Simulated scan of single mutants.
Amino acid sequence: MAYATLDDLKGRLDWTLDPDEERIATSALEDASDLAAHYGRNWPEESAPRMVRTLVLKACKRYMANPEGYTQSRAGDETLAWSDAAGENAGTVYFTREEQELLAGLAGRNPGLHSVGVSAWQSVRRPVAVGLVPVDTPGSAADPFPMYSDEVGPW
C-alpha cells in the first residue's frame, strides 16, 4: 500500500532516478505510507485525503535528496555532521513533529481537553425545570418561582 506513486515522486525530484534509486524510492514510498497510516489512520488508498499524499511525497523527497541525513558536509577536511533535531530518524524516511500532528488531525485525533458526561450504570435522567424553585403555599398549588435568569441555564 502506498499513498503516492513513483511517478508522483519523480515529478518532484530535480534529477532522473537510476534503477537503484528507483528501488530505494519505491521502498521509501512504502515506508512513508506506513508511517502516515501509523500517525494518522489506515485510509484506503483511493479515499485518502490529498494532504496525506502530499506529506508522503514531502518525506520521500527529503529522504531521496539527503539519504544519509547530513546537515553539514565539507569537502576539504572531509567533515560530515548530522543534526540532533532529526535524532534517530537521520538517514531514514520520517515525518516532522508538525507533519505528525497534521496527520493526526486529518484522522480526527485531535489532542486536547474534552468534556464527557458521566452517569451511573442504568440510571434514568428525570427532566428538571432548571432555575425554578418549588413554592409551598398552604392550601393552593402555586407555580414554581424562577430563581435564575432563564430556564436554559442556571447562570
Rank of each mutant, 00 (worst) to 15 (best):
G117K: 12
R12E: 15
K58E: 15
K58W: 13
L35G: 08
P127S: 09
R109K: 12
F95G: 07
F95L: 00
E46Q: 01
G108Q: 13
A36P: 03
Y70A: 03
F145T: 02
T137V: 15
G69N: 14
A32L: 04
G11H: 12
P49K: 05
R23S: 04
P19K: 14
A65P: 01
H38I: 00
D150A: 00
Q100K: 15
G11T: 10
M64N: 01
A36H: 03
A25D: 04
G153M: 09
G76E: 14
L6T: 08
L35N: 05
Y39H: 13
V93P: 13
A104P: 06
M1T: 09
R74M: 10
P111Q: 15
A37T: 10
P138D: 06
P44K: 07
K61C: 00
R41N: 09
S33P: 09
Y39M: 07
D14V: 06
D7L: 05
A142H: 11
R126Q: 13
M147F: 07
Q122Y: 06
D84V: 12
A37N: 08
T71F: 07
A65M: 11
D14S: 12
E98P: 01
T96E: 12
A107M: 10
A81C: 11
A36W: 05
E68H: 11
R126D: 07
G40P: 15
G117C: 08
S73F: 14
V135M: 05
Y94D: 03
A90I: 06
R23D: 04
V128I: 04
T79I: 08
E68G: 05
A86E: 14
S33F: 00
A141L: 14
R74T: 03
E22C: 04
P154F: 13
L113K: 06
L102D: 01
N42F: 10
R74L: 14
Q122I: 09
R50Y: 09
E151F: 06
G87W: 04
P49Q: 15
V118C: 11
P144L: 08
A4C: 05
E88K: 12
C60K: 05
K10D: 10
N42V: 10
S140D: 01
E30L: 14
M147N: 04
A36Y: 02
A36R: 06
M147Q: 05
V133E: 13
L106H: 08
T137K: 09
N89G: 01
T5C: 00
V52T: 08
Q100G: 11
S33Y: 04
S140V: 11
E22V: 06
V52S: 02
L132I: 07
D34I: 03
G105C: 13
D143P: 07
V128Y: 03
G131Q: 01
Q72Y: 14
R62Q: 06
R53W: 02
T26A: 15
D150T: 02
D18E: 15
L55M: 15
M64L: 00
G131M: 00
G87L: 00
S83V: 02
R12D: 12
S47C: 07
K10C: 10
L132T: 06
Y63I: 03
D7C: 04
R50L: 13
R125L: 02
L57G: 03
R97C: 11
L9N: 11
L106S: 01
V93M: 14
D18K: 10
R125I: 02
P134L: 06
V116A: 15
